[in-house]
Design a protein around this nucleic acid. Structure first.
Lengths: 238, 238
DNA sequence: TGAATAGTGTCTGTAAGACACTATTAG
DNA sequence: CTAATAGTGTCTTACAGACACTATTCA
């Protein structure tokens, strides 16, 4: 019956970004210490208001750069979901579009505009987060775990060339499980388009010995077929 | 830099729903003929503005009911994604949260508040849709196809009890491919928690002959393990 | 030299798909 | 009766995981 949005209090739209990387074999997320109210001084996911005439994706990339002072261009960026519970922001009605980003390990970011500090932090040892950001982060981690199964996006956590062992460490860090090195090796090379050999090898063996490893780049596959499934999780099925 | 959203023109948040069902062995989507500007008289997905203090999920359910005059409670409802291109609505900046709904075949809906008419329509034979609703619909269909692979949600298209053949018809309709009846049968029964036998059978055989079929209800599995994968789509992998 | 790692060989159990076949029902 | 459908048996191939093993490099 002629519902007119201008008759109602305004709604704000924000983006929040779950930016993940692997550091020291652990899954890390980028968090910022808020420099403004509300939740001033609390840790939160980087994010902020979408500007007029700005695409949602662009806003996510902009906030990632602004709040961290880094020219971060994540190797992968995808939409995660929308979070719009009426009370999630004490200021006003805020609907947030969450994004999920993967990137290779980067130097520690500096604080940016609205953030007092920005750091990479292991996801299994986090301080409390502002708003509903813990829920968003959990959704992002679960999405990441699932994406590694059926897409080649694990390579987005790595530099341009990498070894199969480095790729395995990504899977082990994100899934939190140890994988059998030999079987993983054969499996990765058998999936068409997952990785492509460069003909090169590492210049040295591992720090504690071992032969030089062949170097690979990401292949052209968009999906892994057959998929690389996580070790069975009976409990999670029902 | 104290960006304040109140300094800028307002943003509106809407929900749009891709409601799918199977009719006569074809995948159908619920569309409405718009009774208001813009796109008056055009076909569109049901949807509308989110109200203050209303959850996004609740808004999706409400719009589904309001615009169709049906007390539709979809058997499954999930968030599909957000669509926020600045020019997608000529009136103002509108960010839409799209939802995906599955339900069993229902009688033809009546028109509701903002819609001149509401109908189920086969997805492969649609009139042009308003806004960016064709893109949203395509994303929804692809999501539905994928969901059938690794979740038991095909049962959401069926009434409380059903036969394995009816379940197979859901897969065939959504995927658009013929499946081998015998192998499908064995596969479905072998996945733990997918379906549960009731001990009953249909009262008659098929309209053109055949024995009575056993009746099943949806099981308690949340994920299919092992998954029921679509016949290989080599082209879609790269 | 010994320890660690890269990469391969082989075997087993499970699952997917092709195909054949029996049993039951409608017309 | 015939045609259609429900459901099962069986065979082949592919693949995941377990395990063993060789080769290469660092300390």
């Amino acid at each position: 019956m002629g519902y007119n949005p201008r008759d109602y209090p305004p709604v704000a739209v924000t983006v929040d970004v779950v930016a993940l990387t692997i550091r020291d074999r652990r899954l890390n997320v980028l968090i910022v210490e808020r420099g403004v109210q509300p939740y001033l001084g609390h840790w939160a996911l980087p994010g902020g208001f979408v500007r007029p005439d700005e695409n949602l994706d662009d806003a996510a990339v902009r906030e990632l750069g602004e709040e961290t002072g880094l020219g971060i261009r994540p190797a992968h960026l995808e939409q995660l979901g929308s979070y719009g519970t009426p009370e999630r922001d004490p200021r006003m009605r805020v609907v947030s579009i969450a994004y999920l980003a993967f990137g290779p390990d980067l130097p520690d970011p500096m604080a940016g505009s609205d953030a007092a500090e920005a750091v990479w932090h292991p996801v299994d040892d986090l301080p409390p987060l502002a708003f509903d950001h813990e829920r968003i982060l959990n959704d992002g981690i679960e999405r990441a775990r699932s994406k590694l199964e059926y897409t080649p996006l694990a390579t987005a956590f790595l530099p341009g060339t990498f070894t199969v062992s480095e790729l395995r460490l990504i899977y082990e860090s994100v899934w939190g499980t140890a994988l059998h090195a030999g079987n993983f090796h054969r499996k990765v090379l058998s999936v068409p388009g997952f990785v492509e050999g460069t003909g090169e090898t590492t210049q040295t063996g591992g720090p504690k010995g071992g032969p030089r490893a062949k170097l690979y780049t990401a292949g052209d596959a968009k999906l892994l077929h057959p998929a690389l499934l996580r070790p069975s999780r009976e409990e999670e099925i029902r």
